[in-house]
Design a protein around this nucleic acid. Structure first.
Lengths: 148, 148
DNA sequence: TATTGTTATACTCTATAACTATA
DNA sequence: TATAGTTATAGAGTATAACAATA
């Protein structure tokens, strides 16, 4: 077992703590939209990442039960940020997607998070930032798509 | 605003999702100890990181209210994993610390997480792993210790 | 007056189970 | 028979407020 894995797991443990998540997400959602808070943020982000998606698939994507995904999505629909339309291929299913306003909100959220990261890395060299971005991207991909 | 920051924030968004946290933590705590689950895991890990600590400080460390930190700690105390002793410097406070059994449990948890990471990075070159570990460590540090 | 740990209370988040409709 | 979405219910997680003790 490599030293690198030991070091990575220690740092990952810190990163995944509630404390960072809470402060970061609160910073990102502040003042963006009445319907967006730290709980609805993952929902609309999930839809933004996956495109038109069923409630069941969205639940799997963001790690909650489909009943919860359905209810969270419903409140974003009534807020005008998501649209729910019947799936032409399967009449049981409905597909969730962003409205134009939802798209604007997601863009703002994404920009807010990027600003925060940019601030935190202000004193980094461009090459270190670039290198981290590449390796971190692979890391996140391999963590979230565990095959083995 | 750099492209690297954009890329990093997108990947960080994915990493901080509930889905990864849930699956990863569940894997780490599985079968380690009756008193350890995904909710008590951050508590005992917080104590392990900080050494002897008051309930109020522990709450700040892990991002919950001191009342919750107090109650979570209390249940780990009765499980024999934490010890609570009066702070000699401040008679209002009590200091939480690991028992020997608690230390063993934390060691196991830490090892479990490292094994998971090690598995996910099995196909990485040693130099990429090493490079990621260094940069990621700085990243986590700068994220969690925002000064500006 | 402020802070510590604790407890009581209420609120929020989430999963489970049950229901209807469609595959 | 299995899966979609939804709703009702119950349980778990968490914060707020209030308390006594100490600073």
């Amino acid at each position: 077992m490599s030293d690198a894995a030991q070091q990575l797991s220690d740092d990952l443990g810190i990163l995944l703590q509630r404390r960072l998540r809470t402060t970061l997400h609160a910073e990102v959602v502040a003042g963006v939209h009445d319907a967006i808070d730290v709980n609805s943020y993952p929902v609309i982000s999930g839809v933004a990442r996956t495109g038109p998606i069923s409630a069941a698939a969205l639940g799997a994507e963001i790690g909650v039960d489909r009943s919860l995904a359905s209810r969270k999505a419903a409140s974003l629909v009534s807020a005008g940020l998501l649209r729910s339309s019947p799936d032409p291929a399967d009449r049981r299913a409905t597909l969730l997607d962003l409205t134009e306003e939802g798209r604007r909100v997601v863009d703002t959220l994404r920009r807010n998070l990027t600003v925060v990261i940019d601030e935190r890395l202000r004193h980094w060299s461009a090459s270190d930032r670039h290198e981290l971005a590449g390796l971190f991207g692979r890391f996140v991909h391999d963590l979230t798509n565990a095959k083995e």
